[in-house]
C-alpha cells in the first residue's frame, strides 16, 4: 500500500514536472535515438565526422516554425560541411496536435526536401530532457572530450517576421565562434514561439 502511495506521489510529481528546465550552455547534451522521417534511427553517433550539432525543436504547424523553415534548411546547407549538421526534432504530441503525426512529418520533409533529419520524439522524452519549451527552440551542441555539451540555447536570429535587412544571426555567430576555437559571446536568447503541444492532463 505504502509502495503504491509513493508511486502515486512520484507520478503526480512527474506530471507537475512537465515543465522541465531548459538546458543551458555548459550542461551535457543528452544523446538520443529517435526515428527519422526516412525510417532510420538517428543519434549523435550517426554523424561520426561532425564537430557538433544544431538541434532544433520545430514542427509542422507553428507559424513561427513555418516562418523559420527555410532558414533552418539554409543553416544545414551552410553548416553541415563545416561540421554542424541540423537535427530537427518534433516536440509535439501527435494526439494533441493532429498535424504533427509521423506521417505528416514525412509528407512535409518530402515536400520541402529537408536536407536534414526530422525526428519523431515518442512520449516527448528528449523534448523534456532538453527542456524545449516552444517551436522553434534551438540548441547548439559541440562534441568535447567530456562528451556532447550545450553551447547555446534560444532563437535562430532576431527576426521571426523575416523582414529585417540587418538581422543578428545568433546561431551562425555561435558556430562561427566555435569553429574559430572561441567561446560564443551570446549563449542564451529568448523569442516568442508556439508552446509544445501536450496531451490534456487528466
Amino acid at each position: 500500500m505504502k509502495k503504491y502511495l509513493s508511486l502515486m506521489l512520484l507520478f503526480s510529481a512527474f506530471m507537475m514536472q512537465a515543465q522541465a528546465p531548459t538546458l543551458k550552455a555548459g550542461q551535457a547534451a543528452p544523446d538520443f535515438k529517435l526515428k527519422n522521417v526516412d525510417g532510420k534511427e538517428i543519434s549523435f553517433a550517426s554523424y561520426p565526422d561532425a564537430k557538433g550539432f544544431i538541434v532544433v525543436f520545430t514542427c509542422n504547424t507553428c507559424p513561427y516554425a513555418i516562418g523559420y523553415e527555410q532558414r533552418i534548411i539554409d543553416l544545414d546547407n551552410k553548416y553541415r560541411s563545416k561540421g554542424y549538421p541540423v537535427i530537427a526534432i518534433n516536440p509535439n504530441d501527435p494526439e494533441a496536435s493532429k498535424a504533427d503525426t509521423f506521417d505528416k512529418m514525412q509528407a512535409l520533409a518530402k515536400e520541402k526536401k529537408y536536407p536534414f533529419a526530422y525526428l519523431f520524439d515518442p512520449g516527448q522524452v528528449v523534448t523534456d530532457q532538453y527542456g524545449a519549451k516552444r517551436t522553434p527552440h534551438l540548441f547548439i551542441v559541440s562534441k568535447s572530450a567530456k562528451g556532447t555539451v550545450v553551447e547555446y540555447t534560444g532563437a535562430i536570429d532576431n527576426d521571426p517576421e523575416g523582414t529585417k535587412t540587418d538581422k543578428t544571426k545568433f546561431a551562425e555567430s555561435v558556430i562561427d565562434a566555435l569553429n574559430s576555437n572561441q567561446k560564443p559571446a551570446i549563449t542564451e536568447t529568448k523569442e516568442i514561439g508556439c508552446t509544445v503541444k501536450r496531451k490534456a492532463k487528466a
Binding site: T22, K133, R134, H137, K190, I192, G193, C194, T195
Partner: peptide
C-alpha cells in the same frame, strides 16, 4: 525577461 525571467517565450 521583464514580464517574467522564467518565461521562455512560448504562448
Amino acid at each position: 525577461d521583464r514580464i517574467d525571467p522564467s518565461w521562455s517565450g512560448s504562448i
